[in-house]
Design a binder for these strands. Structure first.
Lengths: 190, 190
DNA sequence: GTCTATAACTCGATAGAC
DNA sequence: GTCTATCGAGTTATAGAC
């Protein structure tokens, strides 16, 4: 599919709106203005707002899978791989945005069940991948953490999502770089 | 002020709605139904929705100050004090809710500037208190972390807020207990 | 595939009676 | 302090022309 097909432009604009303002704070009118069409035309591509949200998260999960596979192909150290993963969040922070998944997770109770499931899938896949990298890093002597890799993975994921959300309220002081530093410091502590 | 004055009941109900659904997903109609009055009557107490939000966060910050002062008066270990603080988040998690401040922080771009400032104040006071407890704990030999207390405080605050938001999408698996465990494990690592 | 026009509803907010 | 009634604007969504 070409990058400037209407569907793709709608998805891109909607994702930015949700990452900046939230799912319940953007309308088809906002989206129509960004893309340069009328609201009725959006309904041709996404009958209901819930359909748009679901398509967005499904694309987001697919992109995550491709990104993680790409990172794994680099065959660098587990620490470097984790840094590449955290880099995704640091780039989002530098845009003043939050993660699409984190934004939707904070609005979870207002979402359709399929969209709730897609959010859960994104979290689960991320944590599983992080835990695998930590586990491998321990085995290969990169890390020396004594606890369960899955526990550290859940904690890191929480701090990355929370960090993005809190970062915008900290007047420019970067938060994700600090989180990365604390995280590796804990993983490498004797 | 008596606990069942209308203003207090409005604040309590509005806080729950924001913690469950989000600032942009609750209406004066929802609130009126919860409290048992008409929407026009809400406007008598809070002329605009932004005024209600601001009053909510101001009350929330004041309650935080009282709670932290109360914890400090116990004169227990710094680890116990931090556990008492984390307990507030664990109780919120067990209600299936997220922090009022975290909920508003995720909707930050849609809030009035005074409300944005109140959110920032809540985060700042929490992190300052955490950092002081960590700093004291290091001096008194409870903790052995080498990094800056303020960095760990920012990371803990991020993971608590993010943990609450992600927890609801993890089908009942508790997340805050895990975060607490990982956090103290990192603080006490040799 | 995009448009105009509009339905049907909800939103925050106000006026004025009681 | 709470009510009824209402306003104007915004919302998602649909019908039907082009």
């Amino acid at each position: 599919m070409r990058a400037n097909e209407t569907v793709v432009r709608l998805l891109n604009a909607a994702q930015l709106l949700i990452q900046e303002r939230g799912y319940n704070a953007f309308s088809y009118k906002d989206l129509a203005e960004k893309v340069g069409i009328r609201t009725a035309s959006i309904h041709y591509h996404f009958a209901a707002k819930a359909d748009l949200g679901l398509a967005l998260m499904e694309r987001y999960v697919e992109e995550l899978d491709r990104t993680l596979a790409s990172i794994d192909r680099t065959r660098s150290t587990n620490k470097a791989k984790l840094k590449s993963f955290i880099k995704l969040y640091r780039d989002t922070e530098s845009c003043g945005a939050i993660c699409l998944c984190g934004s939707l997770a904070s609005d979870r109770e207002t979402l359709s069940p399929p969209l709730q499931e897609a959010v859960a899938a994104y979290i689960e896949r991320s944590e599983t991948w992080i835990a695998e990298r930590i586990s491998a890093g321990i085995q290969q002597g990169e890390f020396s953490f004594a606890g369960k890799p899955a526990d550290v993975a859940a904690t890191l994921m929480s701090s990355l999502q929370g960090g993005l959300i809190l970062s915008r309220s900290r007047s420019g002081r970067p938060l994700l770089a600090t989180i990365q530093r604390v995280f590796f410091s804990a993983l490498e502590a004797a």
